[in-house]
Structure formats: C-alpha cells, structure tokens
C-alpha cells in the first residue's frame, strides 16, 4: 500500500512574526526570571546550590523565550487554494486543519497592540463546526486584509448556510 503523508502548507508566517513572538515571550519570561533572581537575592539564604538552581532557571526561561518563537515559526504554515484553507501548527503535537471554501461561515482579522507595532495581523476562519476556528497567525496586515476580503467574497458567493 502506498504511504500517504500530508505535505506541509506552502506559506510561512511573516518573518516579522519571530520578532513579535520574541517580544511577547520576553514580556512573560523576563519578569519571571527577574522575580526568581530577586526572590533569591532578597529572601533566600545564599547557598551556592540554590544560587546555581535559580541562575539555571532564569537562563532556561530566557533561552526558551529566545528559541520558542523560532520553533513556532518553522512549524506554523498555511495555504489557501481556490477550494480550501489548509493550516498546520503545533510542535510536539502536530495539528493540521482543512476547511473547504464552501463551508466557511465567517472570516475575521484581528490585531493586538504589540502585533500592530510589527504591522502584523491574524486571520480567523470559522466553519459551522464547534470544533474550533482555524487561525492563521502573524501575517503581514495588508496580506491579511486581502486574504480576508478574498475569502469573504468566495464564501458569499456560495449558496446555502454552510452546515
């Protein structure tokens, strides 16, 4: 029997996504690492073993914050053909989502405050299923608007209520 696999979707997120995700993860990781170090400095007995553990934790936090966005960037891919939206995401657990154009109900774009600084936007595509929306993250905001317009035009042209 032939071996069947899913090919990755053709497009990556915008390269600026790495910067955006890095900023976001540092916004979380820096206070965490700082809190650990401060806690050790002011409150804990200064034993070398504990000091080493705290330093390792802080370093791990910062390293993860620096590397995770790159890993994310490599696994998150998307593709929109004339027939379907196809998205891959997830690092340990891979998730592929496919929705045919004819079954798309709504198309939204969203831009967070930090995201806006980088000129990025997310596109969210929902179907009638309650299994969750399909999200294409961190696209150039003009590309996102264009995609949303294109998807909306196609879905409006499709008769029926897409259930």
């Amino acid at each position: 029997m032939a071996e069947v696999t899913l090919r990755p979707p053709r497009n990556l997120a915008d390269p600026r996504a790495i910067a955006w995700w890095t900023v976001q993860s540092f916004l979380l990781a820096v206070p965490l690492a700082a809190a650990a170090v401060a806690g050790y400095w002011f409150f804990a007995p200064h034993s070398p073993a504990l000091g080493f553990a705290v330093a390792a934790l802080a370093a791990a936090c910062l390293l993860l914050a620096a590397l995770a966005p790159r890993a994310c960037y490599r696994v998150q891919r998307w593709e929109i053909t004339d027939e379907a939206v196809y998205v891959r995401s997830g690092w340990l657990t891979h998730t592929w989502r496919v929705a045919p154009m004819s079954r798309i109900q709504t198309v939204d774009t969203a831009r967070g405050p930090v995201q806006r600084l980088f000129g990025l936007a997310d596109v969210t595509v929902t179907t009638a299923s309650s299994a969750g929306a399909i999200k294409i993250e961190a696209l150039d905001h003009e590309l996102a608007a264009e995609l949303a317009a294109r998807l909306t035009a196609i879905t409006q042209a499709t008769p029926g209520d897409a259930t």
Binding site: L92, T95, W96, R103, S129, A162, T163
Partner: peptide, 12 residues
C-alpha cells in the same frame, strides 16, 4: 455530506 472540514492530529 455533513463533513465541513478535517482536523488531523498527531502527538509525539
């Protein structure tokens, strides 16, 4: 005919 898409998952 009622399938409106696929969600395919593969854990580690």
């Amino acid at each position: 005919g009622g399938i409106v898409g696929w969600r395919i998952r593969q854990s580690f």
